[in-house]
Structures are given as structure tokens and as C-alpha cells.
């Protein structure tokens, strides 16, 4: 396998997704969870653009990436809003304190 540009970009995609999921697995901070989601989404956007470019439909890839940016920015906003509200009501951002619903 050569290190052609598509492989490199795809490696970035997979790396971002991996790092993001790893963060979701180990972090205990509500805000960091949002950071992790953002990291994963960056990977998805890169992938969209790469696929668009390689199929010769970069414009399509770009417009899809835009939609993804908008959607996930809203998700980030809502995640942060929830985090702030959690902090207000529980006084903590620790996910461990956010586990009353179980079993």
C-alpha cells in the first residue's frame, strides 16, 4: 500500500474517529464529551470531502459537509447547554455524578 493522499486522509479520518471514541470511553467530564463528539465529526467531514473529490463530485461532498457542520454544531451547542444546566443543578460536571438512572 502506498501512502497516497486518499490513504493519508482516510487515516486521519479513522484516527480522529478512534481518538474521539476513546475520549468518550475514558473521560469523566461532561464538556470533554462534547469535545470528543466534535473530534469525531471532523473525521466524518473529511471523509465526505474525500469521497466527493475522488468521485469527481466535490461540490456534492462540500454541501453535505456543510450540512454535517451545521447539524453537529447544533449538537455541540445543545451538549454545552446541557452541561451548563447539569452544572447548575448538580454542581458537578463529573459523569460519575450523572448516573442516578441505572438498573
Amino acid at each position: 500500500m502506498n501512502l497516497s493522499i486518499p490513504v493519508i486522509v482516510m487515516a486521519a479520518v479513522i484516527g480522529l474517529v478512534g481518538i474521539g471514541f476513546y475520549c468518550l470511553l475514558v473521560t469523566r467530564n461532561m464538556i470533554r464529551v462534547v469535545v470528543a463528539l466534535q473530534i469525531i465529526v471532523k473525521g466524518a467531514m473529511l471523509a465526505l470531502l474525500l469521497a466527493g473529490r475522488m468521485r469527481g463530485q466535490l461540490a456534492l461532498g462540500q454541501s453535505m459537509a456543510l450540512t454535517v457542520i451545521v447539524a453537529d454544531t447544533i449538537v455541540a451547542v445543545l451538549g454545552l447547554a446541557l452541561a451548563v444546566q447539569v452544572k447548575r443543578r448538580l454542581g458537578s460536571l463529573d459523569l460519575n455524578d450523572l448516573s442516578s438512572l441505572k438498573r
Binding site: D72, R89, L98
Partner: peptide
């Protein structure tokens, strides 16, 4: 708190 917690889980998991 319970409602917020549910919201957080719902948001994060559906986003992932």
C-alpha cells in the same frame, strides 16, 4: 437531575 441525565445520554449516544 434525572431528566438532564437522560438528555445527556440521549444526545451523546445519538450523536455518536
Amino acid at each position: 437531575p434525572g431528566s438532564l441525565e437522560a438528555g445527556v445520554k440521549y444526545l451523546v449516544q445519538s450523536a455518536a
